[in-house]
């Protein structure tokens, strides 16, 4: 009930937005287009789930976009190894996800054991992963991948785009984790009052590190999907994604000070921004103007959220 209420403000804004675009464009409210919106938001929304975990602990992860690119080039390059596809494919996925976990482990360790602020840690990792992606590929994209790989991000299952299915699974799992497990409860407690959480016997450092690992793994999954969508490993993929992701989380009502927020909100936040981009495209609004509009809507959404809380 409380979660519903917390998400209501943004849900309302979303309904208004959908109504406006439905009125202005006959192509907007169609099954094809709505599935298209879902596909378009899937990749950032998956990362946004990880980001929600991190922001709930009053942290931030700026490295997600670069990590997506690094994971993308590493995973795709492994597909080109001289191996049979049924070995190369799982190996590439596993390597990508492990790389994401490693990135999260490094970030979490630096934040908790060495007490460097998350902003600085992940800012540094952001440039490190981006740099390594370029070093690893010598600046060239990884091309000519097995055809099956492209299916992962571009195919459909039961008519639904695969990335959207992954997104839904991730959201449902995250919802269960946050509201029905000890881990989830500890995340809220740490974000709400880290010292009280520590004195309640919670292993704050361990939990926070795990949260960064979750974010890293989800970014890696997203990076693999993105590479598949582009059918190539691009070292400059995912530039500025971290900001889109943070915007979605904040618009979804999660507090940057930690302890308050839901993945339901993050889903609606991702959808609000995704619908906006899609609608503006349908209305042939130029990309320069779109940027301005998106920024204004982010501000409005957050204002609405604050106003609701008063």
């Amino acid at each position: 009930m409380k979660n519903l209420y917390q998400s209501f403000g943004i849900g309302f804004a979303l309904l208004v937005e959908i109504a406006i675009f439905s009125a202005l464009s006959p192509h907007f409210f169609t099954t094809d287009n709505l599935l298209n919106v879902m596909l378009q938001i899937s990749i950032t929304a998956i990362v946004a789930v990880g980001m929600t975990f991190v922001i709930l602990t009053a942290g931030i992860d700026l490295s997600v976009g670069s990590l997506m690119a690094f994971v993308g080039v590493v995973a795709t390059s492994m597909l080109k190894l001289d191996l049979r596809l049924e070995y190369a494919f799982p190996l590439a996925m596993l390597a990508g996800l492990l790389l994401g976990a490693a990135s999260g482990l490094i970030a979490g360790t630096l934040v908790t054991r060495f007490r460097i602020t998350p902003f600085i840690v992940t800012l540094a990792l952001m440039t490190i992963w981006r740099g390594l992606a370029f070093v690893y590929t010598e600046g060239r994209p990884v091309w000519e991948l097995p055809e099956a790989f492209a299916l992962l991000g571009n195919g459909r299952t039961l008519g639904i785009p695969n990335p959207t299915i992954v997104m839904i699974v991730v959201f449902v799992t995250a919802y269960v984790v946050l509201s029905h497990t000890r881990f989830g409860r500890y995340i809220y407690a740490i974000g709400g009052n880290p010292e009280a959480a520590r004195l309640a016997g919670i292993g704050v450092k361990r939990i926070v590190t795990q949260v960064y690992v979750v974010c890293g793994v989800l970014s890696a999954a997203s990076g693999i999907l993105l590479a598949s969508r582009m059918n190539s490993g691009q070292p400059n993929a995912g530039i500025m994604y971290e900001l889109d992701v943070i915007a979605a989380v904040v618009v979804g009502g999660t507090s940057l000070f930690g302890g308050r927020g839901t993945v339901t909100g993050t889903f609606l936040g991702s959808l609000l921004i995704g619908v906006l981009r899609n609608g503006l495209n349908l209305l042939n609004v130029g990309s320069y103007v779109q940027q301005v509009v998106v920024g204004v809507v982010i501000l409005l959404a957050v204002l609405l959220d604050q106003w609701k809380k008063r």
Binding site: R182, R185, Y188, A189, G192, N193, A196, A197, L199, R260
Partner: peptide, 21 residues
């Protein structure tokens, strides 16, 4: 208030915080 409770959490959540297992 400073280091005993997580104020925005419920009574329930604060009471069970140390014995969730």
């Amino acid at each position: 208030n400073l280091d005993g409770l997580v104020l925005q959490m419920s009574i329930l959540e604060n009471i069970t915080l140390s014995s969730l297992s």
